[in-house]
Each structure stands twice: as C-alpha cells, then as structure tokens.
Simulated scan of single mutants.
Amino acid sequence: MTPSNTIYIVDDDHAVRDSLRWLIESENRRCRCYGSATEFLDDFRHGGPSCLVLDVRLPDMNGLQVQDRLTRDHQDIPIIIITGHGDVAMAIRAFKRGAHHFFEKPFSDDALLESIEEALKIDGMHQRARTEQERAMKLVGTLTRREREVMNHVVAGEPNHEVARKLDICTKTVETHRASVMRKMKALTFADLVRMGTSLNAPVHQP
C-alpha cells in the first residue's frame, strides 16, 4: 500500500477509534481518527486513494447527512458504515445511497480489512478515471469542430467511408481529420483514442 493510502475513521466512541486505529496500523496502513463528523468534514481533503469508516450515528449528524455533505462538496470517497443493532435500518439506507459496505457491531476484523482493501482499490480506479477524463477534456478542446465530429464517429467504431457519407465529405478528408485528431489527442494508437473518447462519458459536444 502506498503512503498516500489513508483510511479515515469517524466514531464518537474513543475505545472504538483506538481499536480500529490499532487494527489498521497493525496492517501497516495509515489512518486518521475523528470523534465527530464535523471534525472530519472540516479536515478532509481527498488526495490519494482513501476510504471512510463511519459510525452511522454521531452526536452532530448521522451517516446519511455525512453522505449528503460529501456529495455536495464533490468528495467521492468510498464509505464503510459501522452500526449498532438499533441503527441497521439507517445503515441499509446509507448502503442503498452508495456506501461501499456496512457492518453491524461486533464485526469481523478480517472482513473489515478486506472491505477496506476493496474500497481503496475502487477509489484508486475512480481517481485514475477522473485524471484520464480531465486530460481528455483538455485535449479535445484543441480540436476543430469538424475534428470533433470525426472523432465522435470513429470512436463509435464507424469506418472512414461511413463517416464520410454521414458528414458529406470525401473519405480522404476523413482520413486527414482522423490523423489530426490522433496527433492533437496525443493518442499513440487508435485504442488510446477510443479509451479517451470513452472517458468523456458522452459524445464530444460542439460549442
């Protein structure tokens, strides 16, 4: 696990925080502990791959409210909910709203560690995808309107002659635009271009 991997623990029970800290640090993992949601939210900045182990019921707000705040602040971090028996219904609602997992106390240390590892991998993949998307969006801004049109069609798998027919231009012109798109998008292969087009999650919209 790289040094940037951080597990955030939010629980108002000091004994639970100490126990979780010991468990996580015994696996040579870095963690940060907070006794309230407000303390965590005021301090949290999403850096490298990370996850949040969150008690669903805290003195200042509940797990659903923490989820809402993170969503509002565009902080997309995987959340693992821990809950007492009386709060299972709330934990299930948090899970349905996107929490990575939830555990009812007492829970298995091994199961929690496995869930944390999964959450870190997911967060790492999401961060790489966001980086790829940001890069693609920046590069696509260098394309002309016609090059954007050609890119939309070719990354959809359409052959050059079909693109030419749809855009009412000759095939040679499509080939020229396609080569220009590859160069401007810094795509070494057509597969690179398709991956960047996919990362945009939508057609390359024209201004």
Rank of each mutant, 00 (worst) to 15 (best):
M1Q: 04
N5R: 13
V10Y: 04
D11M: 01
H14L: 15
V16T: 14
R17S: 13
L20Q: 08
L20R: 10
R21K: 14
L23T: 11
L23W: 13
E27C: 13
E27D: 13
N28I: 06
R32F: 11
A37M: 01
T38L: 14
E39W: 03
R45W: 15
H46P: 02
P49R: 03
P49H: 11
S50I: 09
L52K: 12
V56I: 09
R57L: 07
L58I: 03
P59K: 05
D60G: 00
N62W: 04
G63W: 01
L64D: 10
Q65R: 15
Q65I: 13
D68I: 09
I77A: 08
I79V: 15
I81D: 08
I81F: 07
I82Q: 06
T83V: 03
T83R: 03
G86V: 04
V88C: 07
A89R: 12
A89I: 10
A89E: 15
A89V: 12
M90N: 04
A91V: 11
I92F: 12
R93D: 08
F95W: 10
K96W: 07
R97W: 09
A99L: 10
A99Y: 09
H100A: 15
H100G: 10
K105I: 08
E117V: 02
E117H: 07
L120E: 07
L120V: 05
H126I: 02
Q127E: 11
A129K: 01
R130S: 04
R130V: 05
Q133N: 03
A136T: 05
M137F: 01
M137Q: 11
L139E: 05
G141Y: 07
T144Q: 13
R145E: 06
E147R: 14
E149P: 05
V155Q: 00
A156F: 00
G157K: 01
E158H: 04
N160H: 04
N160R: 06
H161N: 13
A164Y: 01
R165K: 12
K166Q: 08
K166S: 09
D168I: 01
D168L: 01
C170D: 14
T171N: 01
T171L: 00
V174M: 04
V174S: 00
H177G: 00
V181H: 06
V181W: 06
V181F: 10
M182N: 05
K184M: 04
M185S: 06
K186Y: 06
K186T: 05
K186E: 15
T189F: 02
T189K: 06
V194W: 07
V194P: 10
R195C: 12
G197A: 02
G197K: 00
L200Y: 02
N201W: 00
P203W: 01
H205L: 13
H205Y: 11
